[in-house]
């Protein structure tokens, strides 16, 4: 035991923190995309696992063929947009259930990503190409600031968009599709656009991630949806706990990004504790399952009637209308 603790170096943890923050911010961008589908449209979109890798593959391949890395990111965004469009059309035009539509696109993207790259992974010689979003330890602080700026711009854009007439129609579609159609909203179109934008944002984060790593891998998106959900849920739970009713849409989006950072810092910390890296996805899934289950179990067992029946102490009153 003592040998285990003495083998842990606090300095190593401190050293890996800036990298953790940078990667957390990049996952935070993806979480913003996941938020658009999971929270706004009320769809768990599994396309994400594929479109993240597509974003990375497109970016790396374009850079390898001499493109400007920033322009390549823009193309990554559009590639994700196309992926989301396919999921949306499978769901709305062909009537395939949303989860299944996402799985179909995800699995087809695996082949498409292999075709884009020609093999399972492609890397860029970081000594030859200078990326803005580099993991070079000397420039790491600049990378963190840059990714944070991207996050801030995206939060502002999403906040603005959801506040417009069009964005309101997308939110209404996610909340109550029957009512939306009765108010003249083309709910199918809203779902397609929402899914496309979400995957565009996810692919953009995939592109940035590939620049940070210096390579793209066909498996880089595996489990991305779960990490995205973890970020969204952790961010919302903490945001609500700290801000309560003051948590408006803009702050909620900010907390989603913070959720991504927290996830990644915890990830780094658990790895530092010498937790086997192979088991990290299992751990992530368990964390997400717990966070998803808590609101349900709270509603089921901590209502007033249950409290009266099983508890001697009076429980907190259930909020009106919940």
């Amino acid at each position: 035991m003592l040998a285990y603790f003495s083998s842990l170096s606090p300095l190593a943890l401190l050293n890996s923190c800036p990298g953790g923050v940078a990667q957390g911010l990049i996952w935070g961008i993806m979480a913003l995309g996941v938020y658009l589908t999971f929270r706004v449209l009320d769809v768990a979109d599994l396309t994400v696992d594929g479109s993240l890798a597509t974003g990375g593959a497109v970016c790396i391949m374009l850079v390898l063929s001499g493109w400007n890395p920033q322009l390549a990111l823009l193309i990554s965004f559009f590639a994700g947009l196309a992926a989301g469009l396919i999921t949306g059309l499978l769901h709305t035009a062909l009537g395939i259930p949303d989860i299944l539509a996402g799985i179909l696109t995800q699995i087809s993207l695996y082949s498409i990503n292999l075709n884009i790259m020609g093999k399972a992974n492609q890397s860029v010689n970081v000594n030859k190409v200078t990326f803005l979003f580099t993991s070079n330890s000397k420039l790491l602080l600049r990378t963190i600031v840059l990714v944070a700026v991207v996050c801030a711009v995206l939060i502002a854009l999403i906040y603005w968009f959801l506040g417009t007439e069009f964005g309101s129609a997308i939110r209404a579609t996610g909340t109550n599709p029957n009512m939306s159609r009765a108010q003249g909203i083309n709910t199918n179109l809203m779902k397609v656009i929402g899914l496309a934008l979400s995957n565009g944002v996810v692919a953009l984060s995939g592109g940035i991630l590939s620049q940070y790593q210096g390579f793209a891998d066909v498996n880089m998106g595996r489990g991305a949806i779960v990490i995205g959900l973890a970020a969204v849920i952790i961010g919302e739970v903490l945001g609500e706990a700290i801000l309560g009713k003051r948590l408006n849409m803009a702050l909620r989006l900010l907390w989603v990004v913070i959720g991504g950072i927290i996830y990644y810092i915890v990830y780094v910390f658990v790895l530092w504790l010498k937790f086997p890296a192979d088991d990290m996805k299992l751990l992530t899934a368990i964390v997400v399952a717990i966070f998803l289950a808590v609101p349900y179990l709270k509603g089921k067992y901590f209502t007033k009637s249950y409290a009266v029946k099983y508890m001697t102490r009076p429980m907190r009153k259930k909020k009106e209308g919940q």
Partner: peptide
């Protein structure tokens, strides 16, 4: 729409039959 404000709900209805813009 339960998660939207009273004003937002009314605004959705006010735009019924009209193109929704930005």
């Amino acid at each position: 729409a339960a998660t939207m404000g009273i004003d937002e709900n009314l605004a959705l209805a006010a735009r019924r039959g009209r193109l929704r813009t930005l």
